[in-house]
Simulated assay, not measured.
Amino acid sequence: MHKLNLLYVEDDIEALEDVVFLLKRSFSDIYTASDGEEGLSIFKNNSIDIVLLDINIPKIDGLQLATEIRELDEYIPILFISAHSDTINLLSAIDLRAISYIIKPFNINELKNSILKAIHIVNKDKNKSNKIFLNNGFYWDNYKTELTYRTELLALTKNEILLIKHLFENRNRFLTAEDLKEIIFPEKKVEANSIVQMLSRLRTKIIRKINNDNFFIENIYGNGYKIK
């Protein structure tokens, strides 16, 4: 078993159960959803390594769901399952950098080989060193979602990791507290001020840890937050 998590979104319950039974030995956890909205919520609130999507799912279809997931994580392997092989869907899947487009009814080995390919990609990426210099001695590894100061690994909460990851992946623009709230607390009725407080606590924690006033997130009044 690989220490990886899979998100599988499928509205055909029988097909979902069959695939989960087939793949359960390959993953630590398999998260399932029967529609796109539920799938997006699970993705935002859990650590997902690979995404398997049926295209024709309710509320948010598989292609739109993949588009929203790509906005949150540009590297995660995405695989599609579809009962149709029309060119438009296939081209959309290519645009979303899907690693497989599996047509129903599919051969079991075809699915297994596609999943093994995705696992290989994730494991290869996780072993990479992808430290990006931020400023003043801070480095961010977007594959391992780790923050270091010089050579010291800094302890972060799950929400702090989501916060930094999203700021990093949008590092060429400012994000407001409202923008960040929608990513970190998508299903919770919280005020944008919760993000302001989180950033303040993170800044205080890091400044105390490194014993100086350096910080890698800037806040410009009226614009929002951005990685320096």
Results as ranks from 00 to 15, higher is better:
Leu4Asn: 06
Leu7Val: 07
Tyr8Thr: 05
Tyr8Phe: 10
Val9Pro: 05
Val9Cys: 06
Val9His: 12
Glu10Arg: 11
Glu10Leu: 11
Glu10Trp: 04
Glu10Tyr: 02
Asp12Tyr: 06
Asp12Gln: 08
Asp12Pro: 10
Ile13Trp: 06
Ile13Ser: 13
Ile13His: 08
Ile13Thr: 09
Glu14Cys: 03
Leu16Ser: 13
Leu16Gly: 10
Leu16Thr: 05
Leu16Asn: 06
Leu16Val: 05
Asp18Arg: 13
Asp18Leu: 11
Val19Lys: 01
Phe21Thr: 15
Phe21Arg: 10
Leu22Gln: 09
Leu22Gly: 06
Leu22Asn: 08
Leu23Asp: 04
Leu23Ala: 11
Leu23Ser: 09
Lys24Asp: 08
Lys24Pro: 10
Lys24His: 08
Lys24Met: 12
Lys24Ala: 14
Arg25Ile: 12
Arg25Lys: 12
Phe27Ser: 07
Phe27Val: 15
Phe27Leu: 05
Phe27Met: 05
Ser28Ile: 14
Ile30Trp: 10
Ile30Thr: 07
Tyr31Met: 12
Thr32Phe: 07
Thr32Trp: 07
Thr32Lys: 11
Ala33His: 09
Ala33Ile: 05
Ala33Gly: 06
Ala33Cys: 13
Ser34Asp: 15
Asp35Ala: 10
Gly36Cys: 13
Glu37Cys: 07
Glu38Gln: 14
Gly39Ser: 04
Gly39Glu: 10
Gly39His: 14
Leu40His: 06
Leu40Arg: 01
Leu40Gly: 02
Ser41Lys: 13
Ser41His: 12
Ile42Cys: 12
Phe43Val: 07
Phe43Trp: 06
Lys44Leu: 12
Asn45Arg: 14
Asn45Ala: 02
Asn46Cys: 15
Asn46Trp: 12
Ser47Ala: 12
Ser47Met: 10
Ile48Arg: 00
Asp49Gly: 08
Asp49Thr: 07
Asp49Ser: 15
Asp49His: 14
Ile50Gly: 00
Ile50Thr: 01
Val51Pro: 01
Leu52Glu: 07
Leu53Asn: 00
Leu53Gln: 04
Leu53Trp: 04
Leu53Val: 00
Leu53Asp: 08
Asp54Pro: 12
Asn56Ser: 13
Ile57Gln: 08
Pro58Cys: 11
Pro58Asp: 12
Lys59Met: 14
Lys59Glu: 09
Ile60Asp: 05
Ile60Phe: 13
Ile60Ala: 14
Asp61Thr: 06
Asp61Gln: 12
Asp61Arg: 11
Gly62Lys: 14
Leu63Tyr: 03
Leu63His: 06
Leu63Trp: 01
Leu65Thr: 11
Leu65Ile: 03
Ala66His: 07
Ala66Trp: 02
Glu68Lys: 01
Glu68Phe: 04
Ile69Thr: 02
Ile69Tyr: 00
Ile69Asp: 00
Ile69Val: 07
Ile69Asn: 00
Ile69Lys: 00
Ile69Met: 01
Arg70Asn: 03
Glu71Lys: 05
Leu72Ala: 04
Asp73Arg: 02
Asp73Asn: 15
Asp73Ile: 04
Glu74His: 10
Glu74Cys: 04
Tyr75Asn: 07
Tyr75Gln: 09
Ile76Ser: 05
Ile76Phe: 01
Ile76Leu: 10
Pro77Ser: 07
Pro77Gly: 02
Ile78Lys: 02
Ile78Val: 13
Ile78Asp: 03
Ile78Trp: 00
Leu79Pro: 00
Ile81Arg: 03
Ser82Arg: 06
Ser82Val: 05
Ser82Glu: 11
Ala83Arg: 11
Ala83Ile: 15
Ala83Ser: 14
